[in-house]
């Protein structure tokens, strides 16, 4: 016991350092986005001009994290990509990338918000409104929900039909000013602007009309089926 040990001189600096770090972390949590935004404003322009790429190793904050829930995801291009519309519809369809590009495009500038906290402000998105595809497919009377499949072979997500018809729910063909890269879920992914990121299925390959909302991949693992961001945020100026 401590009485038995030799005398230890000095001040309890170690304990103070530990408590100080905990307080610092608490202040960082409570400040929310304030410190992060300031730092990102400072570092993001530097990162763009950094030829060494070293700044990318610094956790600037406002950057994408890349989620994949399976092993290797196949790469699809304009020749091999297909988007199936099926389930409870009058007209099933299989769209190529060119088909989708020929449809009216909707552009949005909105945040990408992950439920765990990270977000990327003011991302440029464009693509076809999901409601456009739903109108063409003409859902049958009993259809109340939309289920998304991914060509990663595992991921699924769902929206109610009403949510799916919102103006800011798009089948995205472009993000960040160019075609969607493979790591971002390209060539085609969902972007469900009013909801957390897990609702925006990457590598989307099928949209199926169903009678009920079928909880998706992360919803089976604890995330809410209602994915609306609370409080709503990030409406582009």
């Amino acid at each position: 016991m401590e009485e038995a040990g030799p005398e230890v001189d000095g001040k309890p600096v170690g304990r103070r350092a530990i408590l100080g770090l905990i307080a610092l972390a608490g202040a960082g949590v409570a400040s929310g986005t304030a410190i992060q935004d300031g730092l990102a404003n400072f570092l993001a322009p530097l990162e763009l001009r950094d030829p060494t790429g070293l700044i990318a190793l610094i956790p600037v904050g406002d950057t994408f994290r890349f989620y994949s829930v399976t092993g290797t995801v196949p790469t699809k291009n304009a020749q091999t990509y297909r988007l199936a519309i099926d389930g409870m519809v009058t007209h099933t369809a299989s769209y190529t990338l060119a088909d989708l590009q020929a449809m009216p495009q909707t552009a949005l500038v909105r945040d990408f918000q992950c439920i765990t906290g990270w977000h990327v402000p003011q991302v440029h998105w464009s693509g076809v409104r999901l409601s456009t595809l739903l109108d063409r497919a003409a859902p049958l009377a009993g259809a109340t929900a939309v289920r998304f499949r991914s060509f990663d072979g595992t991921y699924t997500e769902s929206l109610t039909l009403d949510q799916a018809r919102l103006d800011d729910v798009i089948v995205a063909l472009q993000m960040l000013g160019g075609p969607i890269t493979h790591n971002h879920g390209g060539p085609v992914r969902m972007y469900v602007a009013p909801m957390y990121g897990y609702k925006s299925t990457k590598w989307v390959s099928g949209i199926e009309l169903t009678a009920n909302v079928d909880p998706g991949y992360w919803e089976h693992r604890g995330y809410p089926v209602d994915g609306f961001i609370n409080p709503p945020q990030g409406n582009g100026a």
Binding site: V29, S31, T33, H119, N230, P231
Partner: peptide
Amino acid sequence: LSWRTGATFVHDW
């Protein structure tokens, strides 16, 4: 949400 954003930031650093 704002705490989660702060926590992510603190966790990274």
